[in-house]
């Protein structure tokens, strides 16, 4: 039913758990079966350094998210994407009725990137305001 690669990822996930001080977090749910996920991203100079996940979901979902987190590392955060074929190839085989997991993965990642961009804009705004304050102080 499950490949050895899926079972290995399920039994010993490398990227599961909460991340303190993440630069972007995103959540999504599959309304059909209630599966819910959260992704945490740590980003340095626009590049994803670390990605972690939490999942309320089955064996395949845990394995796919764990594999995907490895794939995200090193990608530019705002353009980060998931290659379904590559994940399936790494995990050996995924039953057709479980392929819905990729929508959950993509929705969760999109939400995390959106959150990262929002936080970045907030930081930029803060920076601009600080610079404006500094230059106003200088002028005075």
């Amino acid at each position: 039913m499950y490949t050895k690669q899926i079972m290995d990822r399920f039994l010993s996930p490398k990227n599961s758990g909460r991340m303190i001080g993440a630069d972007g977090t995103g959540s999504a749910s599959n309304l059909r079966n209630g599966e819910t996920a959260r992704i945490y991203l740590r980003v340095n100079e626009g590049i994803i350094e670390e990605a972690k996940f939490k999942v309320f979901g089955g064996i395949t979902t845990i394995a796919v998210f764990d594999e995907a987190m490895d794939m995200l590392k090193g990608q530019e955060a705002i353009n980060a994407s998931i290659n379904e074929e590559e994940i399936v190839s790494h995990l050996g085989f995924i039953e057709a009725e479980r392929l819905y997991v990729f929508k959950l993965l993509k929705d969760t990642l999109a939400d995390a990137i959106k959150d990262y961009e929002k936080r970045q804009k907030r930081l930029e705004l803060k920076k601009i305001k600080e610079q404006a304050r500094e230059s106003a102080n200088k002028d005075n």
């Binding site: 309304l31 059909r32 079966n33 209630g34 599966e35 819910t36 309320f56 089955g58 009725e97 479980r98 819905y100």
Partner: peptide, 19 residues
């Protein structure tokens, strides 16, 4: 089946509880 149990849903359980 990846669908939640029709029995538990009929008893008023949420999808998450059923799963």
């Amino acid at each position: 089946s990846v669908e939640p149990s029709h029995v538990l849903l009929a008893m008023g359980k949420s999808i998450e509880e059923a799963q």
